[in-house]
Design a protein around this nucleic acid. Structure first.
Lengths: 239, 239
DNA sequence: CGAGTACTTGACTGTGGTCAAAGCCAGTGG
DNA sequence: CCACTGGCTTTGACCACAGTCAAGTACTCG
């Protein structure tokens, strides 16, 4: 059940067998959500965190005028809201973009973990720091990258993140977002995203159709995105 | 020396006297930096984190074309790079925006803290999660807010953050940034920031001159910024 | 087969970018 | 005390990238 999480953690550090068992004991109730369901509301008090097992979710914030900004995308193996353990409530909403399955981890078990498993605690802390690193890279996209580079960068990031958990092939990956939802990630309108997708297709870099990203020229795509994956901390270092 | 840090933490949770002592023992070497000095380079291996004692610093990333995005501003009491404890190196640069004083905290002492002081560990974890919450709010600004709302929001955020550590009055605060640097925070050009600042002044909302922000109509400013400080987690809750 | 949603495209608009010149001010040196 | 310098700010004219609006097309799913 925690396979994807283990793959994600083992890509970065050693996990002892006893620690794997301790991780297994964190798991509580399992929940399924339908697509487009808002799973966590901004501000609501939380006493558990959720680990995504299947599907894709996102974090988002709304403005009064209807503008919505997606601030992160979650793939299997990601915690949706591990940060709610210390924050107690969230500053954003969390929504299922597809049908999803999650497992709940009660905060009291996380608290016990911080008392008994300092190494796992550091790994979990790392995991929230990784979220923050992705937020920073998105800030760079939103603030300074051109429209085409933003979309290209998003596709590159997801390719790399899905590869870690074995959910992307060299050729591409499933990505069941609408163009409007992509627009909400990259700070553009859906109309403009559509135009950018056409350009990316015509320049033979990447194709997005029918909920699937097909890499046509990954190196070229990474070049125009200025994608440098260091911010994903993909190498192994003891934490 | 750790006064500002204590004020920041005590705004959110109880700190026992013994914990205060433990915090004091984290402190190592003190360093001074001149304005405009890049203090930490992206990618450089780190074995200490830095707590800002005086001055203002920022995190930033560059693009090849010279575009720079500032992803966070630090005020006294903030750790510049507490996340480097688990990440081991940073995905961004850190620069002193004014003359600054910091105190170094060796990672080995932080590691010992995670073994011996679970409550402080959770507080430090909280502190990096707070950084991420600010990143998310900036993503919303960069992706969806208008130019004037972005600048207004930045001024509101700093007012609130500086108040916690006692470095802002009702009337405003010192903010020794150039207009170009503000532009690098909000994803605009310095020319446009200049136009926006004029608007804010003419609408009697806020004035920025000579490295000082003067609040003229704080409620009005917060309204056009859609500033809702929940993301700063200013209330006290046990962590 | 019809309804609803998502995608596509074109015409037009506007916010914010670019380029350039001038003004301002603090610091430095004659 | 003044001239010079360099960085920052201010303004204007013009431009372009991306937004808006609207209509039409393509798919899915009941």
């Amino acid at each position: 059940m925690i396979d994807y999480l283990l793959r994600k953690l083992r890509a970065r550090d050693e996990i002892a067998d006893l620690e794997e068992l301790a991780l297994g004991r964190l798991a509580g109730e399992i929940r399924d959500y339908p697509a487009d369901k808002t799973v966590i509301q901004e501000g609501e008090p939380l006493d558990f965190s959720s680990l995504l097992l299947e599907g894709m979710m996102c974090r988002y914030k709304d403005l009064r005028d209807g503008g919505r900004q997606i601030s992160a995308i979650h793939v299997p193996g990601d915690f949706l809201d591990l940060h709610s353990f210390t924050l107690k409530r969230l500053d954003h909403n969390v929504m299922a973009m597809t049908r999803c399955k999650v497992v709940l981890v009660p905060h009291e078990r996380l608290k016990a973990m911080t008392e008994e498993e300092p190494h796992l605690t550091r790994l979990f802390w790392f995991s929230t720091n990784l979220d923050a690193a992705m937020h920073r890279e998105w800030e760079l996209s939103l603030g300074r990258r051109s429209a085409i580079a933003r979309v290209a960068h998003l596709f590159c990031e997801l390719q790399a993140r899905l590869e870690i958990v074995g959910l992307a092939e060299e050729a591409g990956y499933d990505f069941k977002f609408t163009q409007t939802e992509i627009a909400e990630c990259v700070g553009l309108t859906s109309v403009h995203v559509n135009r950018v997708l056409r350009q990316l297709r015509e320049r033979r870099l990447v194709e997005f159709r029918g909920g699937r990203v097909t890499m046509l020229d990954r190196a070229g795509l990474e070049r125009i995105a200025e994608f440098r994956p260091a911010y994903l901390y993909l190498d192994r270092r003891p934490i």
